[in-house]
């Protein structure tokens, strides 16, 4: 699905990613953990094509295409989806207009006809119900005045509506109560299929009880310094990151 090789990226002049390697195959779920400021959101933004982040070295191949050469909207049309750590409020644009425009743009890119209003409505109702989302949220402006939990749920609604090939969830679990966490996880698990893949960025092992990862990686100072199975998350929960930091220093 995606192969990231020796990725270096800068934000505001500072190098944040310093030679990151990652391979994610179809059907897999990868969890990325790591201390604050280690570069997790930077990685997510670089993959989504945020221009504030400058790639200085390395390559990213996504389904055979050079991802870094594609504009952000093309990446979305090719099947990249980022659930933002901090979803943006867009006053004056309703959720449904926003999503219909997005779906139609993606369909146009793929030379498919626009979604009919009827089909769209049925689809959004179905997905909202799955996420226990009030229909009122659909007709409201995108994320405007949404609670933290509602915003995260709205990201998952978009994920289900756009049905991408690679979903990158940046701390979608932060700020969720336990019920919301279960619902969001249900949405992600519903999305999962042998044809797509998911990268879950999280600080908490508890999310991984619901979205069970195939691999867990530790990102530290812009590099993946440890990878393992889901048991690595448990180990991190118990021991924190310090033991790894020592490892890394020794390795250098």
């Amino acid at each position: 699905m995606i192969t990231i090789k020796n990725l270096h990226a800068k934000v505001a002049g500072n190098e944040i990613l310093k030679g990151l390697n990652l391979q994610v195959n179809a059907g897999e779920v990868h969890a990325i953990m790591g201390p604050n400021g280690s570069g997790k959101s930077t990685l997510a933004n670089v993959l989504a094509g945020n221009e504030a982040y400058e790639v200085t070295e390395g390559e990213v191949i996504f389904n055979g295409k050079n991802l870094l050469e594609l504009a952000p909207e093309e990446r979305a049309c090719e099947g990249i989806f980022l659930a933002f750590q901090y979803p943006v409020e867009i006053p004056g644009v309703t959720n449904s207009t926003f999503l219909k425009t997005a779906i139609d743009s993606i369909r146009k890119y793929r030379n498919e006809p626009e979604i009919s209003a009827k089909e769209f409505l049925a689809l959004i109702r179905e997905k909202a119900a799955l996420l226990d989302m009030d229909n009122k949220l659909i007709s409201r402006a995108v994320n405007e005045g949404f609670s933290g939990g509602e915003k995260k749920r709205n990201e998952i609604l978009q994920l289900l509506m756009l049905n991408p090939k690679l979903a990158i969830l940046d701390e979608t679990d932060s700020g969720l109560d336990i019920d919301a966490l279960k619902i969001v996880s249900k949405g992600v698990n519903y999305f999962r299929s042998p044809e797509n893949a998911t990268i879950v960025v999280t600080h908490y092992q508890r999310l991984l009880d619901y979205i069970v990862p195939d691999f867990v990686h530790v990102l530290y100072k812009g590099r993946i310094i440890k990878s393992g199975g889901k048991e690595l998350a448990l180990e991190l929960e118990e021991k924190g990151y310090d033991w790894l930091k020592t490892d890394e220093v020794e390795a250098v």
Binding site: N50, E73, A76, V88, I90, F98, A102, S105, L162
Partner: peptide
């Protein structure tokens, strides 16, 4: 700019994203 990127990241062209924000 953040709102623009958010919209574009959903597959919407930069022009359409701009006019969406202006409309809003």
């Amino acid at each position: 700019k953040e709102a623009l990127f958010y919209i574009i990241s959903r597959g919407i062209s930069p022009e359409a994203a701009r006019s969406m924000l202006i409309k809003a």
